[in-house]
Amino acid sequence: MSLGTHHGGRGGGVQEDVGEIVAVADRVRGAIETVIEGKPEVLRLTLTVLLAEGHLLIEDVPGVGKTMLAKALGRAVDCSVQRVQFTPDLLPSDITGVSVYHQDRREFEFNPGPVFANIVLGDEINRASPKTQAALLECMAERQVSVDGQTRALERPFMVVATQNPADMEGTYALPEAQRDRFMARVSVGYPAPQAELDMIDSHGSRSPLEDLRPVTDAAQLRELVDRVRSVHVAPGMRRYVVDLVNATRTSPELRLGASPRATLHLVRAARAYAALDGRHYVVPDDVQALAVPVLAHRLLPGPEAQMERLTPEQIVAKLVARLPVPGPQ
């Protein structure tokens, strides 16, 4: 996609908005890259989810920088960042906050939990009990917290970056489908390339580069950018394309569970953000194609035949994408 970033502007108000998005995103990207090296695609996806107001699920083996990525993002954007380390004994109130009786004032006082932040880092989310997981996921979907009959809205932008170890690791509670569905995208960081790892030794040797990270944008600007992303054009053919793609996951004989309508919305929103990050004010099939696996795959359950053939949902989605005709000229 290196060529894609050279796409020149064409004037017009929308185009300038998009240009600002690109500029801000480049700054954020540059900042994070001082911490996490050699993962441009992961960074791009993270920014996409941020701009699309989604939540990100980072799934990988321990120690590849999942938490570092989330932290770096929180630092690069000047906004509130909270981190929750999920453990089996974590309670729902540890996340949402709790009303404490104030002896002096003789009233209950609400102590907001870590969820009241712009970026919430949920570490090892699958180590918590399902009940606690559910508490966080409810906040993610509704963007509000109800405690003791009082509903409190969460801040904007609100993004949960959850990390989890692969589901089959010891002492984990796999997220149920319904809860995985609330994450806009799932990404796996993967091991760094050898050269990146070498650089990492140098940069992380003396002191953590995270501490040098200065914010390059703030929550207010981010809110504005998010609003602008919503105005990115999705042609009728492209909408149809997204629906066809999601529908294909539902009709594919290789999948036991297809993607939900929520997935359709997520895919369109993510595609808008992805296009904006590319400096375009309209969505092209390439956006959808690039996002199909991260946005759809974690919601799908392979059918028995696919399991026998050891086909992962990622491979199945890639196959569907390779088969679906892109929208032609209108």
Partner: peptide, 18 residues
Amino acid sequence: LWRLALAEEAARYAPSPT
């Protein structure tokens, strides 16, 4: 080739292609 592709892409998907 790239310019042709971008032109086609814009003609297909952009709201008001130039």
